[in-house]
């Protein structure tokens, strides 16, 4: 259902012009200042990744384990005809693994090239628009090195996860 084509793909003039004008009218000037992030939780702590790296969010489904994989790769799932590896973000960040709950979600990420990867998180929150000023370097280099920035949101620190770092293959 959600895959069905829409008029925008047909590229008719009206929708193109509309899209262009919308970007021009209210997007352009703010784009440089605002960053859009998808926030989610591991335990109760907030994390976020850039929205443009998110392809979709799906519920947890049967994960087929794959032999000889690093422990942080849980296995593979089928996603509308595609087979996708699922990374346990908890383990990747050095947080002890735990069983999935009703809130658990797999965030499907765009990797480099055309590849996609699933990332298991405890719960998905919302899309944040955060002003560039609210970001700061994480300063402390963690073991995984995957959290390189923090942003303040309603008095709480949100850890910004470097997606490329999470997906980077290191010799284990």
């Amino acid at each position: 259902m959600s895959e069905a084509g829409s008029a925008s793909e047909n590229g008719d003039w009206e929708s193109l012009a509309r899209a262009a004008s919308l970007r021009g009218a209210d997007g352009e000037d703010q784009v440089d200042l605002l960053r859009e992030l998808l926030s989610f939780r591991l335990d109760e702590s907030p994390y976020a990744i850039p929205v443009e790296r998110v392809r979709e969010i799906v519920r947890v489904r049967k994960i087929t384990s794959v032999p000889k994989m690093p422990s942080w790769v849980l296995g593979v799932v089928a996603l509308r005809g595609e087979i996708v590896q699922v990374v346990d973000l908890r383990m990747r960040l050095g947080i002890p693994s735990k069983s999935t709950s009703r809130q658990s979600r797999i965030i499907v990420l765009h990797g480099d090239d055309d590849r996609i990867t699933g990332m298991l998180v405890d719960a998905v929150d919302q899309v944040l628009r955060v002003n560039e000023d609210a970001f700061q370097n994480a300063e402390v280099s963690t073991e995984s090195g995957a959290v390189n920035e923090l942003c303040v949101r309603e008095g709480e620190f949100v850890s910004i996860v470097d997606v490329d770092r999470v997906l980077e293959l290191r010799a284990d």
């Binding site: 959600s2 925008s8 929205v51 998110v54 979709e56 969010i57 979600r105 919302q126």
Partner: peptide
């Protein structure tokens, strides 16, 4: 927007009641 759609769906799946969600992209 696929991301936003998926986020809305994900949010509404967590209502206490049983829900069936249909997504339309236009």
């Amino acid at each position: 927007s696929a991301t936003m759609r998926s986020l809305l769906a994900s949010t509404l799946e967590d209502l206490d009641a049983a829900v069936k969600i249909t997504e339309a992209s236009s």
